[in-house]
Simulated assay, not measured.
Amino acid sequence: MRTFKEIFEEYGADYQKTIARFMGNEKMYMKFLGMLFQDPSMEKLGQALKDKDYGEAFTAAHTLKGVTANMGLTPLFDRVCAIVEPLRLGEAREDYPDMYREIEDEFHRVEGLRDELSEVI
Rank of each mutant, 00 (worst) to 15 (best):
F4G: 06
G66R: 00
K50T: 12
F107T: 05
M1S: 14
E26R: 11
V67E: 05
G34I: 06
I103A: 04
F37A: 00
F77R: 10
R93M: 07
E119F: 13
V80N: 00
F58W: 03
D105W: 10
V84P: 01
M30W: 07
F37N: 01
L64V: 04
A13D: 04
F77M: 10
I121C: 12
K52N: 12
G72A: 01
D51V: 07
H62T: 03
A57I: 03
E102T: 12
A61V: 04
K31I: 14
R93L: 13
D39L: 01
M28C: 09
A61P: 04
E102Q: 15
R2F: 11
E56T: 15
L76M: 03
G72Q: 00
A92Y: 10
R2S: 14
G90D: 07
K17D: 15
F77E: 12
K5Y: 07
M28E: 13
D105S: 14
C81T: 14
G112F: 09
I103F: 05
L87H: 00
N70R: 02
R79K: 15
E102P: 09
A57Q: 01
Q47S: 14
E9W: 03
T18K: 00
D53Y: 03
A13H: 09
T68G: 00
F58R: 00
D78R: 00
L113C: 06
R88P: 07
F58D: 02
G12V: 00
K31F: 12
E116G: 13
D51I: 08
L73S: 02
G12H: 00
D115C: 09
V84M: 02
M23H: 11
E9T: 05
L87F: 01
Y100I: 07
Q38I: 09
Y11G: 01
G12W: 07
R114S: 11
L117F: 06
G90M: 08
P75W: 03
C81W: 10
D115V: 10
G90H: 06
V110R: 02
Y29N: 06
C81N: 12
L73F: 08
D78Q: 13
K5D: 08
R79C: 13
V84Q: 01
S118H: 12
L64A: 01
L33Y: 04
L113V: 04
E6G: 09
R2P: 15
D53R: 00
Q47E: 15
M35C: 11
A20K: 13
F77K: 11
G55S: 14
K65R: 08
V80I: 13
M99W: 09
F107D: 04
M42T: 05
L36Q: 06
L36K: 07
R79Y: 13
H108T: 15
V110L: 08
G66P: 10
G66M: 03
E6R: 13
K17F: 14
H62A: 05
G90E: 07
I19E: 06
L45H: 01
L76D: 00
N25E: 09
F32W: 12
G112C: 08
E43A: 14
R2A: 15
E91K: 13
F107C: 07
K27Q: 15
E94A: 15
K52V: 14
E102R: 11
M1H: 14
R21E: 05
G66D: 02
P75C: 04
I19T: 02
K27T: 15
I83Q: 04
A60I: 06
D39G: 06
R79I: 12
F77D: 10
T63A: 08
V67Q: 04
A20S: 15
A57G: 08
E9C: 02
T68H: 00
P75Y: 04
I121N: 10
T74W: 13
G55R: 12
